[in-house]
Design a protein around this nucleic acid. Structure first.
Lengths: 116, 116
DNA sequence: CACTTGTACAACGAGACAGTGGTAGAGTTG
DNA sequence: CAACTCTACCACTGTCTCGTTGTACAAGTG
């Protein structure tokens, strides 16, 4: 994956939009559940304790971004992960977070557990 | 990097926030330039043709997120990449984008090269 | 000590986005 | 065909964020 330098403006917009799509707590939780098993709107609504409209809307965003797939099943619609790379991305982010926490921990650990 | 399943709510918020920080065109361009060389606010302001206040604000966001570092240099402040993982993340996103484009291309390519 | 340069902070208006209520369409059941 | 279930779309509202303007602070320069 070679990246042109500097990154052209349209690509920057695409990347930013992509990050925005994933950068929502509700959508992250939806993806997390879909990773376990493809689900319908109703199932996710129950699992996340959210409104049907809200779940449907977020799934629509994820679907339009090509991250999840839709399959009609009689009267219901089953959603499934289509772009597995989002989880790799998530884990990289978690790695960055963990690294920061570790550094912070090292700084504080060397001194004391005073604060609080 | 093992991920607890389901991802606890506070972690979900953290991840989402992280994505939001990166999910801004201006900040992506700042990171792109900082990748070439650590720079001051003034240099980035010139390079990106943006206002000093705007550049400073976005750099502040990136710094608070621990993605860039600050170093005073006399009257100026030099910013540098601190968390290199953002580029790996970016390239994963680009990979996902490319894959989608390829799939779309395959679908259209099988038919015709009509559009444009 | 004034002046210039470089940076950060606060406040404001504009725009985008998330969540909710209402509603319409598709499919199943009696 | 009528009633019910499941889902998607539309409009509205509150909230957040971006970019700009104005200003304050620090450091070097005459």
């Amino acid at each position: 994956m070679e990246m042109p330098r500097p990154i052209p403006q349209p690509l920057v917009e695409l990347i930013a939009q992509r990050f925005r799509v994933i950068g929502d707590p509700m959508r992250i939780r939806l993806l997390d559940h879909l990773r376990d098993a493809p689900s319908t709107v109703g199932e996710l609504k129950e699992a996340l304790d959210a409104s049907q409209q809200n779940v449907s809307k977020h799934l629509g965003v994820l679907h339009q971004a090509g991250i999840v797939s839709r399959t009609k099943e009689g009267t219901a619609v089953r959603y499934a992960i289509q772009d597995e790379s989002v989880f790799a991305i998530c884990e990289l982010v978690c790695g960055g977070l963990r690294q920061q926490l570790d550094e912070l921990d090292a700084l504080l650990g060397g001194q004391s557990e005073a604060t609080s």
